[in-house]
């Protein structure tokens, strides 16, 4: 078996056998909770990675789109009895639709202007979550009592919920992996480096940016729906500006433009504060210090983009490998 097969198999075993085995071994609801939250934030970091890391658009309102997904899933589930199976894709689609509407006028803005626009939109959505009491129940939040019902099967054990969340997240990350480590991803990277040059090479810059933004928001919406279903209660405070910053920190700590880095960053920033729970309030400060330290000492991140691309192409992408008797495509 080749090395790349081994790594893939190892990852699958890790996610679907090893982690559940550890969870069952400890058998504490708290650990299951951390595992599902870590999975959800890994998806969020991976989706932000596509916009901020690969396409180079500094996005400061990711948590709001994640909130859109959560609210759509929760309201559909609580008020209209639309369950998990349909609610999750609908949540993703509505987040993507809102992202599309947002992207149409703002995508021609550059760097810091785009960041400010997404910040403003994030705040507007947050205000809607908090103040449109008729729809979102305002600051009280939405309770979601209906359990996780997948194709008619009621899933109510902690382990089952972990498996559902982990499979959806793994599938989504697989899609994001293919997007960011392909010619499509390369095109996005080119417009990150120099969009005028990319446009001269025949890349439709605006369309590509809108696509990346919408795809990323779709996955953020799915993460939101998973969050709503696993916690059973959402309130506007879960989708504040500080959450956007937390997700951004994950991407930055892991390394801008590196998908494995984003996942590592998410794991680190979810699990480390939980391990530090005993030190209490300092943990938020530690998040800040980690972010600062990562920018100062590891400007490329824990798993920098170049090494991540090398790793992904050599180990995960057969498409990049040279076939027998043919010239390999792309890379090098």
């Amino acid at each position: 078996m080749s090395k790349s097969r081994l790594i893939k198999l190892g990852l699958i075993i890790l996610v679907f056998a090893l982690v559940p085995a550890i969870l069952v071994g400890f058998d504490k609801g708290y650990y299951y909770q951390i595992a599902t939250i870590a999975a959800i934030f890994m998806l969020l970091a991976a989706s932000l990675h596509l916009v901020t890391g690969v396409a180079g658009l500094l996005h400061l309102g990711h948590a709001a789109l994640y909130g859109v997904g959560a609210y759509v899933a929760a309201i559909l589930g609580a008020e209209y009895g639309i369950g998990f199976t349909i609610g999750v894709p609908l949540a993703g689609l509505s987040a993507a639709a809102i992202a599309f509407l947002v992207a149409l006028p703002t995508m021609r803005l550059m760097s810091i202007y785009f960041a400010v626009a997404t910040l403003g939109i994030g705040q507007m959505l947050f205000l809607i979550f908090q103040n449109w009491v008729g729809l979102t129940k305002g600051p009280n939040g939405v309770m979601l009592f209906s359990g996780l019902n997948l194709f008619g099967f009621e899933i109510d054990t902690d382990l089952g919920i972990y498996y559902v969340v982990a499979s959806i997240v793994a599938l989504s990350i697989l899609v994001l992996n293919r997007l960011s480590h392909s010619y499509y991803g390369n095109a996005l990277r080119s417009l990150r480096e120099d969009d005028q040059c990319a446009s001269a090479m025949g890349i439709n810059v605006t369309v590509m940016k809108i696509q990346a933004f919408v795809i990323s928001s779709f996955f953020a919406g799915i993460a939101g729906a998973l969050w709503a279903y696993t916690t059973g209660y959402i309130s506007p405070n879960d989708f504040q500006f500080s959450q956007s910053i937390l997700i951004l920190t994950m991407v930055v700590v892991g390394g801008l433009g590196s998908l494995p880095g984003a996942l590592i960053g998410a794991l680190l920033l979810i699990i480390l504060p939980e391990m530090l729970r005993s030190v209490g309030d300092i943990r938020n400060i530690i998040v800040g210090v980690m972010m600062f330290g990562a920018i100062l000492f590891l400007p490329k991140g824990l798993f920098g983009e170049v090494s991540a691309l090398n790793f992904a192409r050599r180990m995960l992408g057969q498409g990049w490998a040279a076939k027998k008797g043919e010239k390999g495509i792309g890379w090098k």
């Binding site: 500080s242 910053i245 951004l248 920190t249 930055v252 938020n284 400060i285 998040v287 800040g288 210090v289 972010m291 600062f292 920018i295 100062l296």
Partner: peptide
């Protein structure tokens, strides 16, 4: 981002 980190701290 470093000023953001400072503001969080």
């Amino acid at each position: 981002m470093s000023s953001l980190a400072m503001s969080i701290i």
